[in-house]
Amino acid sequence: MSVATTAQLKAEEIKPKIGSRVLNSKEELLSGEIARDIRDLLEARGVLVFPKIGFTDEEQIAFTKTLGTFAPERAGGAEEISKITLDVKENPSSAEYLKGSLYWHIDGTRNDVPILASLLSCKVPSPKGTGNTGFANTYSAYDDLPEDKKAEYEQYRVIHGPWASLFYYEPEPSLAKLQGYAGIGEQELPLVWKHQSGRKSLVIGCTAAAVVGKTPLESAMIIHGLRDWATGPEFTYSHEWDVGDLVMWDNTGTMHRAEAYDPTCGRMMHRTKLEGEEPFE
Rank of each mutant, 00 (worst) to 15 (best):
residue 146 P to R: 14
residue 43 E to G: 06
residue 123 K to L: 10
residue 125 P to W: 03
residue 226 L to N: 05
residue 203 V to N: 12
residue 268 M to L: 15
residue 177 K to A: 01
residue 81 I to F: 09
residue 217 L to E: 13
residue 20 S to H: 10
residue 83 K to R: 14
residue 144 D to C: 10
residue 72 P to K: 10
residue 235 F to W: 08
residue 88 V to D: 15
residue 271 R to S: 05
residue 122 C to V: 03
residue 87 D to P: 00
residue 87 D to C: 00
residue 65 K to D: 05
residue 8 Q to C: 05
residue 29 L to P: 00
residue 184 I to H: 07
residue 184 I to M: 12
residue 51 P to T: 12
residue 174 S to E: 07
residue 102 L to Q: 07
residue 65 K to H: 07
residue 205 G to K: 12
residue 223 I to L: 15
residue 52 K to N: 13
residue 185 G to H: 12
residue 254 T to N: 07
residue 186 E to H: 15
residue 173 P to M: 00
residue 65 K to F: 06
residue 115 I to D: 09
residue 213 G to P: 14
residue 13 E to V: 12
residue 249 W to G: 04
residue 141 A to Q: 01
residue 235 F to P: 00
residue 197 S to F: 10
residue 45 R to L: 03
residue 143 D to S: 05
residue 27 E to L: 06
residue 114 P to G: 05
residue 234 E to F: 08
residue 201 S to C: 11
residue 227 R to M: 13
residue 255 M to D: 08
residue 36 R to V: 15
residue 252 T to P: 00
residue 206 C to W: 01
residue 236 T to Y: 03
residue 95 A to T: 02
residue 201 S to L: 10
residue 86 L to P: 02
residue 87 D to H: 03
residue 246 L to S: 02
residue 227 R to V: 15
residue 30 L to E: 08
residue 267 R to G: 04
residue 89 K to P: 02
residue 151 A to P: 00
residue 157 R to L: 13
residue 66 T to H: 05
residue 272 T to P: 00
residue 31 S to G: 07
residue 97 Y to T: 13
residue 12 E to N: 09
residue 173 P to D: 00
residue 269 M to G: 04
residue 127 P to G: 03
residue 37 D to I: 09
residue 48 L to T: 01
residue 226 L to R: 07
residue 77 G to D: 01
residue 227 R to F: 10
residue 141 A to T: 02
residue 193 W to E: 07
residue 128 K to G: 04
residue 81 I to N: 03
residue 21 R to K: 12
residue 257 R to P: 01
residue 52 K to Y: 08
residue 99 K to T: 04
residue 154 E to F: 10
residue 263 P to T: 01
residue 193 W to H: 15
residue 235 F to T: 01
residue 172 E to I: 01
residue 166 L to T: 00
residue 40 D to F: 13
residue 162 P to L: 06
residue 262 D to T: 08
residue 192 V to S: 02
residue 140 S to A: 15
residue 224 H to E: 15
residue 21 R to Y: 11
residue 256 H to L: 12
residue 74 R to V: 14
residue 256 H to V: 11
residue 68 G to T: 08
residue 41 L to T: 09
residue 129 G to P: 04
residue 182 A to M: 14
residue 208 A to V: 13
residue 237 Y to H: 13
residue 200 K to A: 06
residue 133 T to K: 01
residue 23 L to F: 09
residue 59 E to Y: 07
residue 178 L to Q: 08
residue 207 T to I: 06
residue 241 W to V: 02
residue 67 L to Q: 05
residue 92 P to N: 06
residue 110 R to V: 07
residue 61 I to L: 12
residue 175 L to W: 05
residue 152 E to F: 12
residue 217 L to G: 04
residue 84 I to W: 02
residue 172 E to Y: 06
residue 36 R to P: 09
residue 89 K to Y: 12
residue 216 P to D: 12
residue 80 E to H: 06
